[in-house]
Amino acid sequence: MADVTPLLVATGLKRHFGGLRAVDGVDFSLPAGEIRAIIGPNGAGKTTFVSLLSGRLEPSEGRVTFAGEDVTRLPAYRRVQRGIAYTFQITNIYLTKSVADNVRVAVESRARRERGVEFEAATLEALQAVGLEDRAETPAGELAYGHQRLLEVAMGLALRPKLLILDEPTQGLSDAEIRAFIALVRRIAETATVLLIEHNMDVVMALADRITVLARGQVLAEGTPAEIRANSEVQAAYLGTPC
């Protein structure tokens, strides 16, 4: 498989809020099959950047290409239909619906695009992937926080995405939960490309094939975990040294 076109490409991506340049000219390329982490100090524009990729925000300038197709002007739901799934930074599920019903909504979305989706089997499969099959009939609002995050990932999985964007997935999880989560993301990466915004550097170092560092809306550095660890500019950005 030589010369594979990347799954996702962003060119000259900009997003301004009034005078604030949240994302200021980012070029970004993500090959299929990779686990990529995006890190950066607070306010670096990470969430804005992935929002531009997932279509929750429109860019002020620049282009986004997904699987060879220009998706810059596509609304978020159409990008999801093409295979970009997004899990929110703040847990975002249907609190009054049962766990299984939460996943069923996602399965329904897939069933509208693909033929022959086995509804109950697909639901169960997604729940088993995150280990929530025992809680299928519990109202989602009654789950512990860690389990709600897992449910959100299960909904993402049920979409069978090509690209799964996880926005700070381990925030608020216990150490044991984080270990299980790392294993889960490795399994997901067998079938999908993963883009991860993460603060916890242990998680990043354990999972990422490559890391992109954002600061002040621009790409500061990009490379393997070892390269990033050794990069002095990155250290300066994190320590807040004035430049």
Partner: peptide, 22 residues
């Protein structure tokens, strides 16, 4: 299924859009 989508919109609009529904 349409009814399920309707109540999904009612309960959480942002989530429903990010599951691929118009």
């Amino acid at each position: 299924a349409r009814g399920r989508i309707a109540t999904a919109v009612r309960d959480n609009e942002g989530r429903t859009e990010m599951l691929g529904f118009n």
